[in-house]
């Protein structure tokens, strides 16, 4: 008994345990998502997050301890973002042909994301710092945090809202676009990337490689546009 406690207190502090937990939880969630026929609600990110949160809660492990191990996975987000250059390059002829629709869709999606988020939240009585934290929610996390700070939001809250936006977008997109009978993978991918950044892009890559490539472009372009537009639009809602 005492030995087991000692072993646990050693393992619980080691990155190995939480890195392994992250990979195992994701493997189980991905397998379950496959079993569920890739149903929209069976989102592997969401399921893995809930699974790990339960483990952390049961073992009363602080997030900081968990992140010591999980940071190795988190770190790969940077190289993975750089790697998006390859599908962009592979789809170059398609991208060139879609330049005008992409720019139009970028403005429509980016403006809608910022204005409706602020409008709905304000109508529901949200004001001040909390409201400003919501403005850049569709941009990729590092941009959103910077924008939030610049317009008087709370970066920690923005980080939470950005992730939830990504997961919501990944869950909503497929059923909604199927219901609308949108069959253009370029349009589907691009829209998800603009509205739901990297998590939307991850989802798009699982469905169709063209959608994934266009989603990556949507994410990158909206990072830039949100940084320019959000501070201007946020002023109107102060």
């Amino acid at each position: 008994m005492n030995d087991a406690v000692l072993l646990w207190s050693y393992l619980a502090q080691e990155p190995l345990l939480w890195l392994t937990t992250t990979l195992v939880a994701y493997t189980i969630s991905d397998w379950a998502a496959g079993k569920a026929g890739r149903h929209a609600l069976a989102n592997p990110v969401l399921m893995a997050v809930i699974l790990i949160a339960l483990v952390l809660w049961v073992t009363s492990t602080p997030y900081a301890t968990y992140f010591e191990g999980a940071q190795f996975v988190h770190f790969m987000l940077g190289p993975a973002t750089v790697a998006l250059a390859l599908p962009l390059y592979d789809n170059l002829p398609k991208v060139k042909a879609a330049l005008v629709p992409m720019i139009a869709a970028l403005f429509a999606g980016s403006l809608t994301a910022i204005i409706t988020a602020l409008g709905i939240a304000k109508a529901m009585g949200i004001t001040g710092e909390t409201l400003m934290s919501l403005a850049p929610k569709s941009a990729t996390a590092p941009v959103a945090l910077g924008v939030s700070e610049a317009i008087g939001g709370q970066p920690t809250l923005t980080a939470v809202l950005v992730i939830l936006t990504g997961i919501s977008g990944a869950i909503i997109a497929t059923p909604m676009l199927n219901a609308l009978k949108i069959t253009d993978w370029r349009a589907r991918g691009f829209a998800v990337g603009v509205a739901a950044h990297g998590i939307g892009t991850a989802h798009a890559f699982r469905i169709n490689s063209t959608a994934g490539a266009f989603s990556g472009i949507g994410m990158g372009l909206n990072a830039v546009l949100t940084a320019l537009l959000a501070p201007l639009i946020a002023r109107l809602f102060l």
Partner: peptide
């Protein structure tokens, strides 16, 4: 309020972008 704003706004943004692209 935050969750409602976030989900509705994300759905509308996807819609706006996809319809504009297709148009």
């Amino acid at each position: 309020g935050l969750i409602v704003a976030l989900i509705v706004s994300t759905a509308l943004a996807i819609l706006a972008a996809v319809l504009t692209f297709v148009l």
